[in-house]
Computed example of a mutant assay.
Amino acid sequence: MTSQSFDNLSVLATYLRQRLEQKKYILLFAYNGTGKTRLSMNFKMIGKVGNDEEEVRDTLYFNAFTEDLFSWDNDLDGGARRVLRMNTDSRFFSGLQELEMENRIRPLLRRYADFDFYIDYEQATVNFTREVRATSEHTETLEHIKVSRGEENIFIWCFFLAVAQLAVDEQEAYDWVDYIYIDDPISSLDDNNAIAVASHLAQLLKSGSGKIKTVISSHHHLFFNVMCNELGNAEKYFLSKEIGSYLLTDTGETPRYHHVALLKQLHGAAESGEIYTYHFNILRNILEKTATFHGFRNFSACIKQGSDDPDGILHARLVNVLSHGNYSLYEPQNMLPENKDYFRKILRDFMENYRFNPELFPAPTQESSNP
């Protein structure tokens, strides 16, 4: 793995733009506090030219500042008309009404949430609603509800996805977009929805003509792993902060340094019995990276051959089939007992064959073993 040092984030942002002259996607993994958000703003500022009246930009971005474009009006006097206000001074909201944003956002939001919304374009506000059961036979709609912080973040993410789709489709209102920069979109989602968000985002990006180049940064192991799989030809880096500089390490196709964290997650699932179909996606990812590292052409080479499967074909097919189902978007899908057994066997054999620190993976106890 090769590494490069950069004196500041502006120089690093310039380098990323240079790399995007040759690549469509760049994926960055970095821990919180490294400077991911500031890097995204430096990247954006490089493409910002001119004054307020004749300003030219080239980057559509999602980060903590995007979330700040929305703020709550809690109706402190009446306490009944709570709305989310949009800062329409931002170019992010260009031409919303003409583009029928509600119809674009709603199908995305329904993947993750059970509330609805309506946009008042004149007032630049969002009214959230939710249906609740009033009686055994009837429901009623609650207006102007205040959704949770997690639900608010999901709504803003879906809002951004709808705008990004317009840019990818080269709609006139967003034809200024040459780059999309996304920083940590899924901080409030669980692992199951992290897979769904990553998969859907990759599908959106790949649906375009290739005009728009994309940078995605994250501290979320699973999200980053899925993006690596979905955008296989992306350049992949680990960003770290050194004393007085920033270090960018090209991870290439070697296993991610955080594969141990993912193995701990799988080990914990196997121990608890809470094994879901998406765990096979994680297992396959680790097998593929291990195979690449050891020079094998297929992940099946990393599956131990047993007396019940001397060629390793059965278990390889199981991993292949169970890791290619539809990503569960709202509720994790539990596995059948026999598939759980296969999962445990493949994982256990892998960890025995490729030795890991046993202190990180305590042996199961009878009390903790679950079906």
Rank of each mutant, 00 (worst) to 15 (best):
92 F>P: 03
54 E>Q: 07
177 V>F: 07
344 R>A: 08
122 E>G: 01
8 N>G: 08
69 L>Y: 03
300 S>A: 15
16 L>K: 06
358 P>M: 10
46 I>Y: 09
333 Q>Y: 06
92 F>V: 13
172 E>Y: 05
299 F>R: 02
127 N>P: 00
301 A>K: 11
347 L>G: 04
141 T>E: 11
11 V>F: 02
92 F>E: 05
270 A>D: 05
84 L>M: 15
296 F>P: 00
353 N>P: 00
274 E>L: 13
125 T>R: 01
88 T>G: 00
310 P>A: 09
66 T>I: 06
361 F>S: 06
96 L>N: 09
172 E>G: 00
3 S>I: 11
167 A>Q: 03
122 E>F: 05
202 A>V: 07
215 V>F: 04
98 E>C: 02
48 K>A: 12
331 E>F: 08
231 L>Q: 04
29 F>C: 05
238 F>G: 08
38 R>C: 03
366 Q>W: 07
115 F>L: 13
58 D>P: 00
330 Y>S: 10
73 D>M: 09
366 Q>Y: 08
86 M>Y: 07
149 R>I: 07
129 T>L: 15
189 L>Y: 04
270 A>Y: 02
184 D>E: 15
165 Q>C: 01
327 Y>F: 05
255 P>K: 15
204 L>E: 08
369 S>M: 14
330 Y>W: 07
344 R>H: 04
239 L>S: 04
113 A>T: 12
152 E>A: 11
156 I>R: 07
344 R>V: 09
348 R>S: 10
132 V>K: 10
282 I>W: 02
134 A>H: 09
231 L>E: 01
156 I>H: 00
63 N>G: 09
92 F>K: 03
118 Y>A: 14
56 V>F: 07
219 H>G: 08
186 I>R: 00
310 P>C: 11
275 I>C: 06
22 Q>V: 11
197 V>W: 09
346 I>N: 02
324 H>Y: 02
87 N>C: 07
340 K>S: 01
352 E>V: 09
201 L>S: 11
238 F>E: 12
233 N>R: 13
118 Y>K: 12
144 H>M: 01
203 Q>S: 12
45 M>Y: 10
363 A>P: 00
280 F>V: 07
38 R>V: 06
278 Y>M: 09
25 Y>Q: 02
277 T>S: 14
184 D>S: 12
23 K>I: 05
250 D>Q: 09
225 N>A: 15
64 A>P: 00
321 V>F: 03
58 D>A: 13
40 S>Y: 04
310 P>T: 13
288 E>F: 02
234 A>T: 02
234 A>I: 04
172 E>D: 08
73 D>T: 01
107 P>A: 09
290 T>I: 10
371 P>R: 14
16 L>S: 06
208 G>I: 10
147 V>G: 01
127 N>H: 09
310 P>V: 15
132 V>P: 00
153 N>T: 11
5 S>V: 14
319 V>G: 01
317 R>W: 01
65 F>K: 09
38 R>W: 13
205 L>F: 15
205 L>C: 08
134 A>R: 13
57 R>G: 06
218 S>M: 11
341 D>G: 04
209 S>K: 12
151 E>V: 06
187 S>M: 06
269 A>D: 02
233 N>F: 08
211 K>N: 10
154 I>F: 01
9 L>H: 03
349 D>F: 11
